[in-house]
């Protein structure tokens, strides 16, 4: 995973609530066997609306997206996170995220920042004209106008993001503990441990 520290730049003041992952990237784009190139299909149904925010030149390549509550609900498709990354978005700020999207975002080094609606409203206003900075180390979102909002993040996730750790590598290092569990399960719950070996 890429290291995450400070993300600074224009923020797309999208603000819509309950944006599902079908809207972020439609199923037609899920036929790929790659993680690349999905930005082209991102938010297609919204981009079909004339004057939509995503196609405003001011926000081209913006690294931050500001959304409404329950961002990324619905399908578990990680393609939604890949599509955002491909658009150049590495931080999403919203009042709330779906559990699966938040996890997918984290695995791809996208920071999902949860802030209360009032602060989101303020950021939406600032984002119309000015850049925003998200800093992982200090867990803050700041604007050029002295706004300074702090956010919570799971300490394990913060460490992984800051140090760019490979989570699978970390878990594989716990091989002995997993092996111990498997031995115990084989003794106590053999019907589960036996699996479906051919």
């Amino acid at each position: 995973m890429n290291r995450v520290s400070t993300i600074s730049g224009r923020a797309i003041p999208f603000g819509r609530k309950n944006v599902d992952t079908d809207v972020i990237i439609a199923a037609e784009w899920l036929k790929t066997i790659s993680r690349e190139g999905l930005g082209e299909g991102a938010f297609a149904s919204i981009r079909a609306e004339p004057g939509n925010i995503f196609d405003e030149p001011a926000f081209a390549g913006a690294p931050i997206l500001i959304a409404g509550d329950n961002f990324g609900c619905g399908s578990s498709r990680e393609h939604a996170a890949w599509a955002l990354l491909d658009m150049g978005i590495t931080a999403v700020i919203a009042p709330g995220f779906s559990d699966i999207f938040a996890s997918n975002a984290f695995k791809n080094g996208i920071l999902s920042v949860t802030l209360p609606q009032e602060q989101i409203d303020r950021l939406m206003e600032v984002a119309q004209t000015d850049p925003i900075t998200v800093d992982l180390e200090t867990q803050t979102v700041t604007t050029p106008f002295q706004d300074r909002f702090t956010f919570e993040i799971d300490p394990f996730r913060k460490t992984c993001l800051t140090e760019g750790l490979d989570e699978i590598g970390l878990t594989l290092a716990r091989d002995e503990a997993i092996g111990t569990y498997e031995t115990r399960q084989a003794a106590q719950m053999p019907w589960l441990a036996k699996g479906i070996a051919a």
Partner: peptide, 12 residues
């Protein structure tokens, strides 16, 4: 789960 977690479960 997402695809990264699919990979995590496959591996671990």
């Amino acid at each position: 789960i997402g695809t990264s977690e699919v990979e995590h479960v496959l591996a671990t």
